[in-house]
Computed example of a mutant assay.
Amino acid sequence: MEQVKGLLIDLDGTLYHGKNMIDGADALIGKLREKNIPYLFVTNNSSRTPEQVAAHLIGMGIPASPEEVCTSSLAAASYIAHESPGAKVAILGEEGLRQALKDAGLEVTEEQPHYVVQGIDRSFSYSSLAKAVQWIQGGAISVLTNPDLLLPSDTGLTPGAGSLGAAIEAASGVKPVVIGKPSSILMKYATDRLGLSPAETVVVGDNMRTDIAAGANAGCRTVLVMTGITTSENMESHMTAAGVRPDYICQDLSEAADLLCTE
């Protein structure tokens, strides 16, 4: 690999599983810091603020700061603020999304919004669905933070933002602007924050259909780690489904550290 100028690193399935750090995650981040290789933690999770994400990582023993966190909520807020500074937005989501939109100078409202921004929303209801559909049919632009259909939890898989978005899309008849992986919008936001071009950036992740596809869509190099969703048994089928192949494959994070941190 040519000398790495910057990394975009996935979180769940790549550095941890739920509340448990994956072996080598702390060492990988430690080596990147030691060698002054710029990186960002890039996640589709829209519910947490950067401070909450960093605290979650630190709690598992992985070095982190809020400034190193890049969420789909932050990218959604940046996208809307760039397209329509000061726009009125209606939110179907949680704290991370609400804070990001407010911090971007957008006006949160339920009266004739210009945008309907939806992420994971564990208080989602029929009333929420009805309001979203009415706003969108009234001309508001539909924005989906991330298309994940399912999320892991302590009790098994649960519906993700994409499942809620599917209901809104079916009822409104309008496809949303998708921000998170595999969309390149999140990746462009992240590379801009690093001050690098996609060609100078490497995406590290465990999921062919989100992490690796997003990296390829954005023009980044990609490293697949076999620490989560993708396994030796399903790798070929996942590559076929994603329509892309990673530039490099590492069996674990120790191998990834050797690849990415070599002078």
Rank of each mutant, 00 (worst) to 15 (best):
V4Y: 05
I9M: 13
D26T: 09
A27D: 09
L32S: 07
E34I: 02
Y39C: 00
L40S: 02
N44F: 02
N44C: 02
N45K: 12
T49L: 00
T49Y: 00
H56C: 03
E68S: 08
E68F: 08
V69I: 14
S72R: 02
S73H: 09
S73R: 07
L74F: 00
A76E: 03
E83D: 11
V89R: 01
V89D: 03
I91A: 09
G93L: 10
L101A: 15
E107D: 08
E110C: 02
Y115G: 00
Q118N: 07
Q118C: 14
F124V: 08
Y126W: 09
Q134D: 08
G139I: 10
N146L: 09
L151P: 01
P152T: 04
P152F: 07
S183T: 03
L186C: 00
L186S: 05
M187H: 02
A190E: 11
R193A: 01
G195I: 13
A199Q: 14
D211P: 10
I212C: 10
A216D: 09
T230W: 05
T230R: 05
S232Y: 05
E233Q: 14
E236R: 13
E236M: 08
H238F: 12
A242C: 09
G243T: 13
D247V: 12
C250R: 01
Q251G: 01
E255D: 15
A256G: 05
A256E: 02
L259T: 08
E263V: 11
